[in-house]
């Protein structure tokens, strides 16, 4: 039987959701993706990932509106 999620797991899910809504870098998601889809590829550190993500985000129009 699958155990029901603990408080910590629930909290981490809430944090993850809020991160996505406010547009913060989703490193966990990136790690999961790399593990599942491209095993063996080099994985960026959190610092690298966050820097690259944010630099790109504030480069194109279409991020924040009037």
């Amino acid at each position: 039987m699958k155990p029901s999620p603990s408080l910590a797991q629930r909290l981490s899910r809430v944090i993850h959701t809020v991160h996505r809504i406010i547009g913060a870098p989703d490193y966990q998601g990136y790690l999961t993706h790399m593990r599942e889809a491209q095993p063996g590829c080099r994985v960026m550190s959190y610092e690298e990932f966050a820097k690259e993500y944010q630099e790109r985000k504030y480069t194109q129009a279409g991020n924040r509106c009037c």
């Binding site: 809504i21 998601g29 990136y30 993706h33 991020n63 509106c65």
Partner: peptide
């Protein structure tokens, strides 16, 4: 899907993200 720009996302999260982006 590249885990960075292209990430499948729950519709409520996309709604929140989109709304926060358009509303100013």
């Amino acid at each position: 899907n590249d885990g960075r720009d292209y990430v499948p996302t729950n519709r409520w999260v996309v709604f929140g993200h989109h709304f926060a982006a358009i509303a100013g």
